[in-house]
Nucleic acid binder design. Structure first.
Length: 222
DNA sequence: CGCCAGGGCCTCA
DNA sequence: TGAGGCCATGGC
């Protein structure tokens, strides 16, 4: 048995990448100016539209708060106020500080020397960093070869018929990483391409008539 | 107006 | 371990 269905999908993970890359071109992610800013954005974008995150990061930048020590010395209420545009601002203020506490205690430089699995466990132990946020950080801040599973990836792959969609996070990540066995540069582009495609076409209400994958998609056939 | 947006934690079976 | 409630703003 493969992925819960008795019919072989018309496409595989590598082909999806080729189609998306051929259509959308290189994405050049993550949209940030430094690894630390990537980490902040990874937390701030949790269940939140990126344009709202940009405003919050802009607030932090203007206040000179793009470092762990600067954020840690900021009063909770003031920090939360700057995060207001990104939503869940009280929760996210706490989560940013939790991340900064880890960075500060471990040493920013030292985190870059950690093996990927060690670093992932450290990140996951930070309250407010779950599997997706940890992998966003590993891939886009630390340039480690991990496949990020987010709501967009689940939606796209399940519509294509490549996964059922209710697999656990780690199961899906292993499936993608063993299927692709790729470099950080490829995983970087792949995730960014999925986001581009999910925003433009494979939306909550999909625009299947505009989709380059529709002829190979289980969802579009129904 | 309701739905959605690059989740994760806590609680309670 | 899994479902449900909660966190909150802004765009469409």
């Amino acid at each position: 048995m493969t992925h819960g269905g008795n019919v072989q999908p018309d496409i595989d993970f590598a082909a999806v990448y080729r189609f998306l890359y051929g259509h959308y071109g290189p994405q050049g992610w993550w949209p940030a100016d430094s690894p630390f800013e990537v980490m902040l954005g990874a937390i701030l974008t949790q269940n939140t539209a990126w344009r709202n995150v940009e405003r919050a990061i802009q607030n932090l930048s203007q206040a000179g708060l793009l470092s762990a020590t600067a954020i840690l010395t900021q009063p909770d209420a003031d920090l939360a106020d700057m995060l207001r545009p990104s939503g869940y601002f009280n929760v996210k203020a706490r989560r940013l500080k939790n991340l900064c506490r880890f960075i500060h205690q471990t040493g920013y430089r030292e985190t870059f020397a950690m093996p990927t699995e060690t670093l992932r466990q450290h990140l996951l132990s930070v309250n407010g960093i779950g599997p997706e946020t940890a992998d966003d950080i590993l891939l886009y801040a630390y340039d480690r070869p991990v496949f990020v599973i987010d709501a967009y990836a689940r939606r796209l792959f399940s519509r294509l018929g490549l996964v059922s969609g209710n697999e656990g996070y780690e199961a899906l990540r292993r499936l993608l990483e063993t299927s692709l066995d790729a470099t950080a540069a490829i995983y970087n582009e792949y995730h960014a391409l999925i986001v581009a495609h999910a925003k433009a076409v494979c939306r909550s209400k999909p625009l299947c008539e505009a989709c380059i994958l529709c002829s190979r998609c289980e969802y579009a056939k129904k």
